[in-house]
Design a protein around this nucleic acid. Structure first.
Lengths: 108, 108
DNA sequence: ACAACGATTCAATAGTCGTTGAACCATTGA
DNA sequence: TCAATGGTTCAACGACTATTGAATCGTTGT
């Protein structure tokens, strides 16, 4: 994962609303949710939700597929795990390896 | 870790400059670096660096201690690991547990 | 074709963030 | 005490982010 991807993912998760969306989607796994269901559960205006979903999609944290007139959103767990790996490698990697890196190269 | 702490940490890491600072500090472990050394290595104006260090300190990702007229900054590895744990628990936790959570409660 | 529906896009606004040099504060050393 | 040094704070500016309702686009079903 490159730095630009990581920062845009962090930026996506820096919003309370978007973090709620991600957690909701993660909780619904492969099935995901259509936009209207998300809006209803989080009580968000449609246009605002659409704005945040676009941000999350651009960052690669969620995927979207069209189902007729619905848009189904799913959390991208692989991307999440990549982000965790990036964070661990670059921000938990001191000299003596007190953080068990499991094969990822460190930052120093 | 509560949501507000997590989002402010993510916000801190959402900036390329601040991510550079964190990585640099992580690479210098317990010893850390004084502000001038950071500014020199990253070629940043002092005032701008001070701004970003303040953001990182407020978020709890770095600590600062005074040494005479110097300010020594260190990465807070425990905070980083808490953030990794939060991210894993809330964003890598689908129904069937395909992400090995190691004892952290999931979000669903 | 057309009305209904789900969702996105647009325009406008308010607020926040990032950057810079100058001014300021605190500590050191002569 | 006074100049030098390390850092932070301030003021100003430009750029970006979040939010909202209205307008728009695409799909469905009659």
């Amino acid at each position: 994962m490159d730095k630009l991807t990581a920062t845009s993912m962090f930026e996506s998760l820096a919003s309370g609303v978007r973090l709620d969306i991600v957690r909701l989607l993660v909780g619904h796994g492969r099935e995901g949710l259509v936009a209207g269901e998300i809006a209803e559960k989080l009580e968000l205006p449609r246009s605002n939700l659409s704005f945040h979903l676009k941000t999350l999609t651009r960052a690669g944290l969620v995927t979207v597929t069209q189902e007729g007139r619905y848009q189904r959103y799913r959390a991208d767990l692989a991307a999440m795990q990549d982000l965790v790996a990036y964070l661990t490698a670059h921000c938990c990697a001191a000299e003596e390896g007190e953080c068990e890196l499991s094969g990822v190269e460190t930052s120093c």
